[in-house]
C-alpha cells in the first residue's frame, strides 16, 4: 500500500511539473486532491485496514497529501509570476520621454524679496502696514523735519502731481520714500508701535542701469517706553544675520537723516570681495544697506507722542538692491521690463 502511495506521488508531481495554465492545474487538483481522488479514497478507507497497517499508511498518505498541496501552491506562485511577467512585458514605455508638464508660475523677485524681509521682521513682532503712493508734501517731508529749503530735498528729486496744493498739507507728490508711512503711523497710532512699511517709491530721475523713476523700499518703526539705540542695533543686526547669512560682517556708522538723531547707517561686508575691496563696494569692503536712527523728538511731538516718555527707532532700506546683490543683477531696469526670460529665473 505504501509503495502504491509513493508511486502515486511521483506520478502526480511529474504531471504537475508539466502544467502551464490554471485550467490544467484545477484538473490536476481535482484528480489528485479532490473528493474523488485516489488519495482521498485511501485516507477515507483507512479504517478498513488492519490495525498494524492503519498507522503507517495513514501517516504516509497525510504526508503525501501535504507534499502535493505544497507542490500545488508552489506551482500556483510560479504560474502567477510567469503570467505577470508576460503582462508587464507587454506594457513597455519609453521612460526617457518628458513628463506631462504642470503649469509653472512664479512671483516677481521684488515681491519675493519683500515677503522675505517682512517675514523676518514679522518674527520680531513687526506688523506689515501701508500708506498711499500719492502723498501730501506734509507726510513725505514736513512731518519728517525736511522743510521746503532743506538740502536733503535735492537728493530726493520729487515728482509732483498737477493738482492745486492744499492749504495745510501742501502739494501732492509721489512719495520719495516709504518713510511717509512712518510719519502717518506716528500721527495715527499710540505706542507701543512696531511696524514695517514696504511699498513703491518714486524719484524724478532719468532712467539708467542704477536708476528707475520707480523702485521699492521698506521702512520700519518701533516706539515704546525705553527703546534704545542698542535695540536698534540688535534688530537690524538680526535682520542682516537672517537675510545675508551668519558670519557676514555688519557695520554701524554715524550718518545724517533729518528725522532721526542719532543717525545710523548700516553696511554689510561686500558680498563679492568679502571685505577685501572691489569695484562693487568702491574698494571700501562695505556695502551700505540701510539708513536708520532714533526718531527725532520733533517728529514724535508732531504726532502727539511725548518724547520725554517714549523713544523709538526708525529705519529705511531699498528693496531692489537686495536681489541685485544676491543674484549679481547689474541693471535695475530688468525688474520693470518684465521680460519672461529674466523673471523665469527666480
Amino acid at each position: 500500500m505504501i509503495s502504491r502511495l509513493e508511486q502515486l506521488k511521483l506520478g502526480a508531481l511529474k504531471e504537475l511539473d508539466l502544467i502551464t495554465d490554471a485550467k490544467e492545474m484545477e484538473l490536476w487538483r481535482v484528480n489528485y486532491l479532490g473528493k474523488k481522488s485516489e488519495l482521498t479514497g485511501i485516507l477515507r478507507s483507512l479504517s478498513s485496514l488492519a490495525v498494524e497497517e492503519r498507522k503507517p499508511v495513514g501517516t504516509a498518505a497525510n504526508r503525501i497529501r501535504t507534499e502535493l498541496e505544497n507542490g500545488l501552491d508552489q506551482k500556483k506562485c510560479a504560474l502567477r509570476e510567469i503570467q505577470l511577467t508576460a503582462v508587464t512585458r507587454e506594457e513597455d514605455i519609453d521612460v526617457t520621454l518628458p513628463g506631462r508638464p504642470l503649469p509653472t508660475g512664479r512671483l516677481h523677485p521684488i515681491t519675493k524679496t519683500i515677503n522675505e524681509v517682512c517675514e523676518i521682521y514679522n518674527s520680531m513682532g513687526f506688523q506689515v502696514t501701508s500708506g498711499p503712493d500719492v502723498e501730501w508734501n506734509y507726510y513725505n517731508f514736513e512731518a519728517l523735519n525736511i522743510h521746503d529749503d532743506h538740502p536733503a530735498r535735492d537728493v530726493m528729486s520729487t515728482s509732483w502731481v498737477d493738482i492745486e496744493a492744499d492749504k495745510d498739507r501742501g502739494q501732492m507728490l509721489l512719495r520719495t520714500h516709504t518713510t511717509s508711512v512712518t510719519a502717518r503711523v506716528i500721527e495715527s497710532q499710540n505706542p507701543p508701535i512696531r511696524v514695517v512699511e514696504p511699498g513703491r517709491v518714486y524719484r524724478y530721475e532719468a532712467t539708467d542701469a542704477t536708476h528707475t523713476p520707480m523702485f521699492h523700499q521698506i521702512d520700519g518703526l518701533a516706539i515704546d517706553k525705553g527703546i534704545t539705540m542698542a535695540d536698534l542695533k540688535g534688530t537690524l543686526y538680526e535682520f542682516a544675520r537672517r537675510f545675508f547669512g551668519e558670519g557676514r560682517g555688519v557695520r554701524f556708522r554715524c550718518d545724517y537723516f533729518p528725522f532721526v538723531e542719532p543717525g545710523v547707517e548700516m553696511a554689510i561686508e561686500c558680498l563679492v570681495c568679502n571685505g577685501r575691496g572691489c569695484r562693487l563696494c568702491g574698494n571700501t569692503g562695505w556695502i551700505e544697506i540701510l539708513g536708520a536712527g532714533m526718531v527725532h523728538p520733533r517728529v514724535l511731538e508732531r504726532g502727539n507722542i511725548d518724547p520725554e516718555t517714549y523713544s523709538g527707532f526708525a529705519f529705511g532700506m531699498g528693496i531692489d538692491r537686495l536681489p541685485m546683490l544676491r543674484y549679481g543683477i547689474d541693471d535695475i531696469r530688468l525688474f520693470y521690463n518684465n521680460d519672461l526670460r529674466f523673471l523665469s529665473q527666480f
Binding site: 520680531m124 512696531r194 542698542a230 535695540d231
Partner: peptide, 18 residues
C-alpha cells in the same frame, strides 16, 4: 557706535492685528 551694545527689543509687544 561700536561701543553701544546690541540688544533685542524687550519692550511690550504691540497687540497683533495683522
Amino acid at each position: 557706535y561700536d561701543k553701544i551694545p546690541t540688544t533685542l527689543l524687550g519692550t511690550t509687544l504691540p497687540s497683533q492685528s495683522p
